[in-house]
Design a protein around this nucleic acid. Structure first.
Length: 283
DNA sequence: ATGGGGGCCTGCCGGC
DNA sequence: TGCCGGCAGGCCCCCA
């Protein structure tokens, strides 16, 4: 659900209330999300100070003073709800536990951070900080799309000879880590690439155009504070505004936004997921 | 190795 | 108003 910009927005919202602050107590209200929580997670979290809040792809990483890192994935519907603090635009009173609040962290500064995830596709794990990169969930992730290692030459190498569609290739977290359905649709539209084109068949100059488009759409979404659809709210509880700037995502049947184009946005299904695109502008 | 599809969960929305 | 099918931003796993 939340893609890279949404997770980065959550990270930025949480950092002021969590970084440098000890976890006074952790309430782990069920034994698992998508996978079982580590044993004694609540006990290990209690008293640990959050040294830094980082992000890798769609994962939040909280480095703790106990030498362990709390890995958090929001899945499709995960949210971090902050209350009990005047830092940021949060609810001032401590929010009582609500339905689907699975893990509640009460910080020593009075803030409460509740992990709420209705669909429970999310995940949490606690690993030695030095082993974060090699954790089984993170080990095979590709480069960050906003990082230096991601460029057209890299993409060319990874896509050469591949028969999968461009849509599927950009959704593959081993190739580039952090894009999801929305931003893949938007980036392919901006780059004028047909989502169904076999990845290995896209010409180098088009990949050269694609990379800055991916970076731009992600940067703009972060700048706008994420997208936030339906049941998702960013860390400060405010709805994000980037969703109003989608060119094609969720706009089936509406006019293509390209000036002079008279087509409507199409929706097709690729490997079970909706793809939105303009058949005129994307070839 | 590659790629395609199923499944995990709950909630919401539109149509009848 | 109520019920039901379809759909949702992710990702692992199995199968051909």
């Amino acid at each position: 659900m939340p893609e890279l910009p949404e997770v980065e927005t959550v990270r930025r919202g949480l950092a002021p209330v969590m970084e440098g602050v000890r976890i006074a107590s952790a309430d782990v209200r069920r034994p698992d999300l998508r996978w079982p929580f580590p044993a004694d997670m609540a006990k290990r979290l209690r008293g640990a100070r959050v040294e830094a809040l980082r992000r890798r792809s769609k994962y939040l990483l909280a480095d703790l003073s106990i030498g362990e890192t709390l890995i958090v994935h929001l899945g499709m519907s995960g949210r971090m709800v902050v209350s009990g603090t005047t830092l940021g635009q949060f609810q001032r009173e401590i929010a009582p536990a609500e339905k689907h609040d699975h893990v509640i962290l009460d910080m020593e500064n009075g803030a409460r951070v509740s992990f709420n995830d209705a669909r429970r596709f999310g995940a949490m794990d606690l690993v030695p900080t030095g082993e974060t990169e090699t954790h089984w969930l993170l080990a095979s992730l590709g480069p960050e799309p906003l990082g230096n290692r991601f460029d057209a030459a890299y993409l060319r190498g990874r896509l050469a000879g591949r028969g999968m569609s461009m849509k599927a290739a950009l959704l593959d977290q081993r190739i580039v880590a952090g894009l999801g359905n929305i931003y893949v649709c938007e980036a392919l539209f901006r780059a004028g690439i047909d989502p169904a084109t076999p990845a290995g068949a896209v010409a180098p100059d088009r990949l050269e155009r694609l990379v800055p488009m991916i970076r731009a759409v992600l940067s703009e979404a972060i700048e706008a504070g994420g997208s936030s659809l339906r049941d998702y709210r960013q860390a400060d509880g405010e709805l994000g505004y980037f969703q109003h700037r989608f060119s094609v995502y969720g706009r089936e049947g509406q006019p293509c936004p390209t000036p002079g184009c008279d087509r409507n946005v199409n929706r097709i299904v690729q490997s079970g997921r909706s793809t939105f695109f303009c058949a005129q502008c994307q070839r």
